[in-house]
């Protein structure tokens, strides 16, 4: 039954391996839109372990799911800044913080919060990230200067369009769930 945390841990370890980390970090868009989401996903898988281990902690501090949601959002916003990505590449301590914060402070709380959240909060989260991604897309595409020391302007523009297309996907989802009341099918 406790298989999924093991898979999550294996995924995390694989992502930490220097060749894998270097490969994904060598391109700006795969750094932010591949490595980071995969780190969060590894956390989603590992969440069960912590929930079983510390049930009291989660029920006390994350009763209605909103605190976990906030923690997740703060971590995600922090890692969408150009500055933090740059630092992860230059300062080892920040790189270590990335590999810890994304799985354990974003992935785990998200998994714990999601089933507890009302559909209002779920949609609020998606709307928030849609707006954030549009703004970031705008920033990365039309910024007149190079934002990261480690990445060229062309990579920055590519990442910007990555944000816009992800935001588009979320907009499609929001429209769909607005028209389709899924509670009838659950």
């Amino acid at each position: 039954m406790m298989k999924s945390p093991v898979y999550g841990l294996l995924l995390l370890l694989a992502l930490i391996l220097p060749p894998a980390a270097n490969l994904l970090e060598s391109i700006m868009i795969t750094h932010m839109h591949m490595q980071m989401p995969l780190l969060v996903i590894s956390g989603l898988f590992m969440a069960k372990f912590f929930q079983n281990r510390f049930p009291g902690f989660f029920s006390k501090w994350n009763e209605n799911g909103v605190p976990g949601l906030l923690l997740f959002s703060i971590i995600m916003v922090y890692w969408s800044l150009p500055r933090t990505m740059d630092e992860a590449l230059t300062l080892t301590s920040v790189e270590v913080f990335k590999f810890i914060s994304l799985p354990f402070l974003a992935g785990v709380p998200l998994r714990d919060s999601w089933p507890k959240l009302s559909s209002f909060w779920k949609h609020a989260l998606i709307i928030f990230f849609t707006i954030l991604f549009l703004a970031l897309g705008w920033l990365y595409i039309w910024s007149p200067v190079q934002l990261c020391n480690n990445y060229l302007v062309i990579e920055q523009i590519t990442l910007g369009w990555g944000f816009i297309s992800t935001a588009f996907a979320m907009v499609v989802y929001l429209i769909y769930s607005y028209f389709m009341d899924f509670s009838k099918y659950e």
């Binding site: 391109i27 868009i29 839109h33 062309i154 523009i157 590519t158 369009w161 990555g162 297309s165 992800t166 588009f168 996907a169 979320m170 499609v172 989802y173 769909y176 769930s177 389709m180």
Partner: peptide, 22 residues
């Protein structure tokens, strides 16, 4: 279906954003 469409769009984004911007 909404979810499948979103997955599809994300995959299309992964495949096309890099070359098209280039």
């Amino acid at each position: 279906w909404g979810l499948w469409v979103v997955c599809m769009i994300v995959l299309v984004g992964m495949a096309y954003v890099i070359p098209l911007v280039d």
